[in-house]
Amino acid sequence: MNLTILLILLIGLVVSAVVCAMLSDLLKAAIALAITSAILSVIMFILGAPLAAVFELSVCAGMITVVFISACSMNRNRTKEEHAQRQKERNKRFIMLPAILFALTAILVMILRPYINDIAPALNTTGGGNVQMALWGDRQVDLLGQIVIILTGVYGVIVFFKEKEADSK
């Protein structure tokens, strides 16, 4: 039963991700991405990773979607003709994407089937394996790295958006 639900969710995950890549309307693509994240968080809950699921839901499905939609609302909407043209081009470009994804997955599953359990073994707990400790307890140094990433993001915004305004003035 659990496996059936998981399979349905996984198919839904791939479909919403593919739709997200194929849509030319940025707003709809952002919503499709949010749906992808929401499905992923449900999968994480089922697989017993509630902490990861909560963050996926609140950050990826929630906050990031808000940021995307805010950015989309600041842009000019395309005319219906432009929109139809873009969607046509996009459909042409990505028409093979679902088929390629399906074929690749089938090939990988066929090749890796005998090794699946060996490739991703059960967590080794003899070395003190504890997901909670690994994700939250031992990460003090990473805070410094995250500070660098956040500051870099700030300067990215300044370089690409703020300085552009200054140039155009």
Partner: peptide, 19 residues
């Protein structure tokens, strides 16, 4: 001295490189 921390700092370097 940790593979995950390594990844975090490598990403920090990459992000700065893009900009």
């Amino acid at each position: 001295t940790d593979v995950f921390s390594l990844y975090v700092f490598v990403e920090a370097v990459s992000a700065a490189s893009f900009v």
